[in-house]
């Protein structure tokens, strides 16, 4: 039986961006998303004993994160929901029982689809990065997402510039292929 091992030391490098993108689509706030990711790692650490190795590390962490997101919404709702007075109902025949908000033309509605696509793009990209070999993934995201200089990366990993470009080339080819499958 294949078992997946668990190693908290590599969590942040490997999964934080993926989890972060997953969260931000759902809570729409950088700070909160970052906190939730952090809490997920803590919770994962605490319940490491329960990790049976049946799922991959990432799947396991996502399942914890989902709980954390639900908890987050529970918390903010229990504070707010009690005081809310529901006066938005209208009672003029046809639209009876509709919320007022539902009757207002939504200016964002036209590009709602585009927005959803965009938010999922972040997840798709980090998903694909996660499939690259580890060194490639790190160098590629440093160069492409965080915009480090070629020289800085070369120094950090102790490689030559042409070395770096070969790695980048391989990563880009793999990324294009992966995104083609999962995105376009």
């Amino acid at each position: 039986m294949p078992t997946n091992t668990i190693d908290p030391n590599t969590w942040i490098d490997k999964y934080s961006d993926y989890l972060f993108n997953y969260t931000i689509v759902r809570v729409d706030d950088r700070e909160i998303a970052q906190d939730l990711v952090q809490e997920t790692f803590f919770a994962g650490l605490k319940s490491m004993k329960n990790f049976k190795g049946e799922a991959s590390e990432r799947t396991w962490l996502i399942s914890i994160l989902k709980r954390k997101i639900i908890d987050h919404y529970r918390k903010i709702n229990s504070n707010k929901g009690k005081a809310e007075v529901r006066i938005n109902y209208t009672n003029d025949g046809e639209t009876e029982g509709d919320w007022l908000e539902e009757r207002v033309a939504d200016p964002f509605d036209q590009n709602a689809e585009g927005k959803i696509e965009n938010t999922e793009l972040g997840i798709a990209i980090h998903n694909c990065i996660g499939k690259l070999p580890e060194k490639q993934a790190r160098i590629f995201s440093m160069k492409t997402i965080q915009g480090f200089d070629t020289e800085a990366i070369c120094n950090e990993f102790d490689i030559t510039a042409s070395n770096l470009w070969v790695i980048i080339h391989r990563a880009r080819t793999a990324m294009a292929e992966c995104l083609e499958k999962n995105w376009f």
Partner: peptide
């Protein structure tokens, strides 16, 4: 293809936690 890939990454929705925050997270972990 390569240009298309670059364009995807330019999308403002493609975000990541910045390095200093990540380092802080590592410390705490």
């Amino acid at each position: 293809k390569n240009t298309k890939l670059t364009k995807l990454f330019k999308d403002p929705k493609v975000i990541s936690i910045n390095q200093s925050a990540k380092d802080a997270m590592k410390e705490q972990l």
